[in-house]
Amino acid sequence: MESLDPRVNRLNLSTTELTSKAPLDQLGTYEVFSQLKEDKPYFHVGPVHAPNCEMAFLFAKEQFSRRQTCTGLFVVETRNIKVSVFTEGEDTVYNYISNPGELANGNTESFELFHLKKRGKQHEYIGTIEASSAEVALSMVKSEFINDKPVYNIWIIKTSDIESSQDEDKIIWDTLPDKKFRDAIAYKAADKIKEFKERQ
């Protein structure tokens, strides 16, 4: 068949009957977090599928930071995120987390902590905690980061599981403000309509 799209005509379309495209070739899942400005917290922005952290970062950069501004981005494999229970209303998730028992003074690692402060919104970075495990970290949060506002869900990520943008790579977002063609404001035309109507 001849297409109107010259690109399609160069594709050599397959003409066989529709069939399933088994076997399934689904790549791994990564969650992406981004920071819009230096002094703003990181937020969860969505997932990408990729074979490894490096490529997940590559994909995340264009899918989740190709507009406005960005000062940092990191990815983490979804299965490496520890998720707490969900609550709602006035019920904070910290009601379900027991106080830290004996804090073993052994080897500790750092963990990154994220809160869901409003159902329907994104998880937001709250702070970093040194602990011997994610469970202990979770129990320590209570004393360190909690205020009166309810928290509906917590994510905890081992810092070493994160692939983050390096300071020297931040230039990859340098020209974002120049990409005006991706923004609605570049397409003002009220004057043209007015002029057109006056001519009628």
């Binding site: 590559l58 950069k61 790579d169 931040k170 230039i171 990859i172 977002w173 340098d174 020209t175 120049d178």
Partner: peptide, 11 residues
């Protein structure tokens, strides 16, 4: 100006 764009391309 476009150093960053090219950095991403080669990356």
């Amino acid at each position: 100006k476009i150093k960053g764009e090219l950095r991403y391309h080669t990356m």
